[in-house]
Amino acid sequence: MTSAMFIQHFFNALTLGSLYGLIAIGYTMVYGILRLINFAHGDIFMMGAYFIFFGTVSFFLPWGVAAVLAIAAASLCGVIIDRIAYQPLRNAPRISALISAIGVSFLIENLALVIFTGLPRPVVQPEWLVKPLAFGNVRILPLGLVVPAISFILVAALLWVVYRTKPGLAMRAISKDIETTRLLGVKVNKIIAFTFALGSALAAASGIMWALRYPQIHPFMGVLPGFKAFIAAVFGGIGSIQGAMVGGLILGFIEIMLVAFFPEFSGYRDAYAFILLIAILLVKPTGLLGEKLEEKI
């Protein structure tokens, strides 16, 4: 492999990895607080992509405006899902909420199939994003730079919210001890809704950028990236935001580089992630940056 090719693969991996990372953060935040795997999270990613499609193609909105609206709408969907499907089950056995999550996921995918139809839709890419830049003999799509850059800005903003603001403090407190946090005056359901809003916003941002990078969207497009992002969250250490991002990037690199270096195995590219999951669970169940999350009472 030439170094020019390697650099191109590097940026592809960085792009894919940051998109996985953005989704993984939502899994990790919700799991950290509710010990719930929000199976519908990948579908929020899909909604982000559809909302940007309708915003730009049906309503002729400028890309920036459409993106902000799509993120806001998907974020609201995340909050509504929590309110309807998870909040009533807060005190029920955890398996009930998990089953509810699976149900919601199927519901959304099938509703999308009915409403949006199963036809893959082409998202129109702004030209400047896909016109390759040439650096000597290295050719890179501007997308390969823009997507990681936006992702890192979003993650930095999120970390600021979590570590420097009052709702962020409450989020971190709830993840360890809900009862004590309530006793100190925190309205827990509001903070949980806020968590869903943040996680869903990042997933939608990922869905939008995914649609730019791979401009064919369909109702089940969130399933596989959703699973892989979940694996990234486990790999990075579930509950850890930084871990989710690192996990996403590693997954992106493994996927792209394995295919690049061993093209003969490229048919197995989706299997790598799952092999990785099994390996982590066997070797280091708490993940790279995770600490042991005790079962909460």
């Binding site: 009052k166 403090l169 409450a170 971190r172 100190l184 005056g185 925190v186």
Partner: peptide, 10 residues
């Protein structure tokens, strides 16, 4: 200090 701030959450 974060524990104390949380005490003043309301």
């Amino acid at each position: 200090i974060e524990n104390l701030r949380l005490g003043a959450y309301s």
